[in-house]
Each structure stands twice: as structure tokens, then as C-alpha cells.
Design a protein around this nucleic acid. Structure first.
Lengths: 205, 205
DNA sequence: TCTGCGGTCAACCTTTCGGTTGATCGGCAG
DNA sequence: CTGCCGATCAACCGAAAGGTTGACCGCAGA
């Protein structure tokens, strides 16, 4: 019998998870929490095997932090992250925080149940998430360097090349140089298009 | 008895909606659909009073279009939009498409039920959504016009002024004119900064 | 009726951005 | 050791974007 804790700020999602997961004979939902803070506390009571953790509570990304704190508990439950978006940065952060799996909310119930059961050893990624990570690691030519991503992030905040240069202690020439590479890798020809493309490819939020 | 159609691409959300709504004695869920297209077809069968319509199917915003097409049916059901974000552009688009209400997924079940029942006359907005709209309408100097929002949306997609002009059948002069007003209202001085500011204020996605 | 405002467009000018070439430097793999 | 690559910067040019002024239309409200 696998004892589950649901951590999500949406009542509808909690009800849906409970409904689909309790169809599995070996699953039992022992608690629901609507905040990351409450989920950490509840997970510490020791009667939970797996926490299903949303990443976004309200408009904050508290799920990563909560995952980290749950994994720091003595004899901690496993944490399976269950979120809407397969943002590359979020996946890496979740794994770094000690998550045992990364599922997407649009998954079929059967797939979810399988991932929750399987997550004893290695990290379990939703097929779509894993596929994207693998595909990108096979295409180093289109992968942005850390520096390029950093510049692009500042562009997405609306900064000018000159302002980015000041922030990063670079000349405008260097900023432009990075951006030209970014444009080429993303197949676009303007900063706004680069931001749109990067967001679509879930390189930035 | 109010007959409901659930249109959402997430199995978990559909199960959750069914679970919380069927607690109401006068509600009955007659169908669930996972695509906007299927929802339009199903709504045409004439045995549905209210469609609960998500805006995002996969990564597309098909919900607006589906709402419009459902409202164009003979003797159409009411459509209540049920989505995760209170993006101002989405709210206006939904109302423009003929939605009878705009609810947020993090709403309490009771509030949802009330809004679904009430939506016979005027449009019903979730309290948080309505509050934001009212607050903004009290500040007419910072409110973007529909046309300005439209242009800004194209900017966020990465289009150039010339491309926006072609798309909207305008001259670049007009596009620039709209953008200058947008910059002034948002307090920024570049298109990328305008996109960033508008996203932060939830004017666009 | 007149006024104001949103929407449309034109002409003009300045600044920024995009694109190219070329160069230096440091680290790392072969 | 040598070559490659990422990061850094400079100078230059054309194109796009930003900013201003001014104009016209239509419509809703004073």
C-alpha cells in the first residue's frame, strides 16, 4: 500500500488526483495540502510514502524549495513533481532538489500511477520531458551556452544591450556578439523574436 | 437540473471538476471532451446547458475560438471559461467570444458552482478577476486600448512592425503610433521592455 | 453642436539594433 | 604542443525601431 500526500493549491486538481489515483487498489491518499509550507510539515509526520508536489503555488515557485526541505527530513518520503509545464530549467531544478520523478499534469492516469510506483530507484521523467532533454543533448549546435542564456534572460526582462552590458560588466559589443549567436541558434532575427522562440522552446519562463 | 459539458485537455482536471461539481444536487456532467474541436461538436447535440471551457489545449489557445463557435450554434449552451490565469487579454477575448463567465481554476468548488448557476444574465467574473479589471478601469490613463493590446500581442510573438502591419492591415506608421502609446502607458521605452511589463501585469500571456 | 478620443496615416529625425569582419585571450581535448 | 571554442571587444554599415509633429475620420458624450 502506497500512502500519498497531494500538494497543490488548486482544489479541483487535488480532487482530480484523488479521484484517479484512488482507483488504484494499492494507492491511498492520506492527506491534501494547499500550500508548500503545509506540505513540508505534513510530510514530516512519517506516514507518507510519496508526495505529489506541484511546483507553482499561486504565482510562486515554492515547490522546488518544499521538495528540498522534504528530502532533508529524516527518513523522507519520495517526492514526485507534478506540474503543467516541462520547462527545462524547472526539470533540472526539481531533480537537483531531490525529486524522484517529474510528471506533467496532462498525463493519463495510468501513466501517472506507473511513474509513482516505479520511482524507487532512478528519477522517473514523463516520456515527453525525457524526450526533449535527450533531443537537446544530441543537438549541441542549437544549445545556447550559459552566457548566451544569461544575456537572453536580460533581453526578456526588457533591457537594452547597453543596460545588459552594464549589468553583466560587458561592452555592448560583447552583448551584441552573444545575441547574434543566439539569433542564429534559434533561427530568428530580432531580440523580441528570440524571446518568443526561447519561451516557446521553454528555455526561459 | 443543469447539464454540464467539461472541456479540458487534462484528465486530472476533468476528474476533479466532475468530482466537485457532482456534489451539487442540481448539476449533472453529461460529457467530457479533451479537445476544443470535440467540445464544439458535442455542444451541438443540444443536450448541454453550460460548457466549462478551458482556454489552453496543449500549448494552443483554442478555447477562445471554440467558445465563439459554440455561441454561434443555434440555441447555444452558455460557455463558462475556466482557466488558470487571469490574463487581462484572455478575459477580454473570452467575453468578446461570448463567454458567460470567467473562472479561475484555483477557485473553491462552492464559488464555482455559484458562478455556473448565476451565469444566465450578465457575465460572471471570478472576484479576483473582476477586482483587477475594476482597479484598472479606475486608471484610464494606464489602460491599453483593445487595438494597442492587439499590437502588443504581435510584438510579444516576435513580429516586426512591418509584419504586424501586414497581419493587421495597417501601415507601419500606425503600428508605431500604437506602440508609442503603449510605451508611454506602460512607462517603458522599448518593445521588449513593453512585453516584459505587460507580461508582469498579466496584460498578455 | 462641439469636444475629446481612438484609430488611421505621413514625413522627418535620432538612436538602437542587427550583421560582418577581425582580433585577443584562456582553457581543454586530441 | 596545437587547434578549437567560448568569451571578450572594436569599428563599421544598413536597417529597424523609437520619437515628434501634424493631419483626418468617426463616434460617443457633454
Amino acid at each position: 500500500m502506497i500512502r500519498l500526500l497531494l500538494a497543490d493549491d488548486h482544489p479541483v486538481v487535488r480532487a482530480g488526483l484523488r479521484a484517479v489515483l484512488e482507483l488504484e487498489p494499492d494507492f491511498v491518499v492520506v492527506a491534501e495540502e494547499a500550500t508548500a509550507e503545509a506540505a513540508v510539515v505534513r510530510a514530516g509526520r512519517g506516514d507518507v510514502d510519496v508526495v505529489l508536489m506541484d511546483l507553482q503555488f499561486g504565482d510562486r515557485l515554492d515547490g522546488i524549495d518544499a521538495t528540498q526541505r522534504i528530502r532533508a527530513l529524516p527518513d523522507p518520503p519520495r517526492v514526485v513533481v507534478l506540474t503543467t509545464y516541462d520547462i527545462e530549467g524547472d526539470v533540472l531544478a526539481a531533480i537537483g532538489a531531490g525529486a524522484a520523478g517529474y510528471l506533467l499534469k496532462d498525463a493519463e492516469p495510468g501513466e501517472m500511477a506507473r511513474a509513482i510506483r516505479a520511482g524507487t530507484g532512478d528519477t522517473v521523467l514523463a516520456p515527453r520531458v525525457a524526450q526533449r532533454l535527450v533531443r537537446r543533448s544530441l543537438q549541441p549546435d542549437t544549445a545556447l551556452s550559459a552566457r548566451e542564456l544569461e544575456v537572453l534572460g536580460s533581453v526578456a526582462e526588457g533591457l537594452s544591450n547597453e543596460a545588459i552590458g552594464r549589468r553583466m560588466f560587458l561592452s555592448q559589443a560583447t552583448v551584441k556578439s552573444h545575441l547574434v549567436h543566439v539569433f542564429s541558434k534559434l533561427g530568428v532575427e530580432s531580440r523580441t523574436a528570440a524571446v518568443a522562440a526561447a519561451r516557446e522552446r521553454r528555455l526561459i519562463r
